[in-house]
């Protein structure tokens, strides 16, 4: 009894001796998160209150689920919710693998300067705001003055061209396409950095074993960055209900609003600018809860596949 207890105690001391510094390192981060993220968290209560931006939040009247009911009451919100799901899913399906593929392609470049150029260029669209991008999209896709018109004239076609930016059939494709194009760079750079961390000896060994390029890419590179992929996927899924406010706000128009309106643009319209904080917070909370449920699910799956992975 005594000895086991003592050895347990010893073990504890040994553990603490070994790890105390790691705990010390965590302190600034935890203090930061607590002060700047958890202290203001009481603001979430606005979702269940009638708070219009005057006076203290604590003193506002509790109204239960009234704000959520108000949101779901209108056709426009239900439509936005539906669009939100369609657009985010499409963005996930097309947007998530794209940077992985691009990173693998760039990794295959053997010429140093060429690699640098490609690496730098993929990140550029991310720096240009959606408002400017929209101007560019208009310059290209306008059926009357755009580049596509000029190209069509050159090849001898002078008939009517579709207006991709004002057509309900095509507009979601435009949203997803431009999202993939603009957002690809950040992911690509992350994966490229992860690839540099893979032990070079693994490649050398595989080469000696006669593995081809594809086999190496598959077995070594992809396996090596699996952890980063899963982490990014989980984070992405947590934010799945954020279907891209600034993008859609900048590029959509009244002809396609029925297929492009998402929760965030809807909430913005009904009055974030007029200080209707309760509705905006309720919508935000709704999105977060969906994100949380999906994250827990994904995390659970990824741990089934690989116990070491996952965020939680």
């Amino acid at each position: 009894m005594n000895t086991t207890e003592r050895s347990k105690w010893k073990k504890q001391i040994g553990y603490f001796r070994r790890y105390w510094m790691l705990y010390a390192m965590l302190i600034p981060g935890i203090v930061y998160i607590t002060v700047f993220k958890y202290v203001p968290m009481y603001g979430v209560s606005i979702a269940f209150k009638d708070y219009n931006g005057f006076g203290k939040i604590a003193e506002a009247e509790w109204v239960g689920l009234k704000n959520f009911r108000r949101l779901f009451e209108t056709n426009a919100f239900r439509r936005a919710f539906y669009n939100n799901i369609i657009i985010s899913l499409a963005k996930l399906v097309f947007g998530f693998p794209a940077p992985i593929i691009l990173a693998l392609m760039i990794d295959g470049i053997r010429t140093k300067w060429a690699k640098r150029i490609v690496q730098t260029s993929v990140i550029l669209p991310d720096f240009v705001s959606w408002v400017v991008i929209y101007g560019l999209m208009y310059a290209i896709f306008s059926p009357n003055t755009g580049v596509i018109r000029q190209v069509a004239s050159v090849i001898g076609y002078n008939g009517k061209l579709p207006n991709l930016l004002a057509d309900k059939e095509t507009f979601r494709a435009v949203i997803v396409g431009s999202h993939v194009w603009k957002g690809m760079g950040i992911g690509t750079v992350t994966y490229l950095a992860a690839i540099t961390g893979i032990d070079q000896q693994l490649y050398d060994a595989a080469t000696i074993d006669g593995a081809g390029r594809w086999q190496k890419t598959w077995h070594i590179t992809l396996t090596g960055i699996r952890g980063v992929i899963i982490t990014l996927l989980i984070i992405r899924i947590g934010h799945i209900m954020n279907a891209g406010f600034s993008q859609i706000f900048a590029i959509s128009n009244s002809a396609v609003v029925s297929v492009a309106d998402i929760i965030d643009t809807y909430v913005y319209r009904i009055g974030l600018t007029q200080g209707r904080f309760s509705l905006a917070t309720a919508a935000g909370l709704f999105k977060s809860v969906i994100g949380l449920v999906l994250v827990l699910f994904t995390n659970w799956i990824s741990k089934k596949v690989d116990p070491d992975s996952g965020i939680m």
Partner: peptide, 22 residues
């Protein structure tokens, strides 16, 4: 536990006003 503690703040936030007051 720490990871969950931090990850949670990626999903939920208090919003502009409480942050401003802080």
């Amino acid at each position: 536990l720490v990871q969950v503690y931090i990850f949670f703040t990626m999903l939920f936030s208090g919003g502009i006003i409480p942050t401003y007051l802080l």
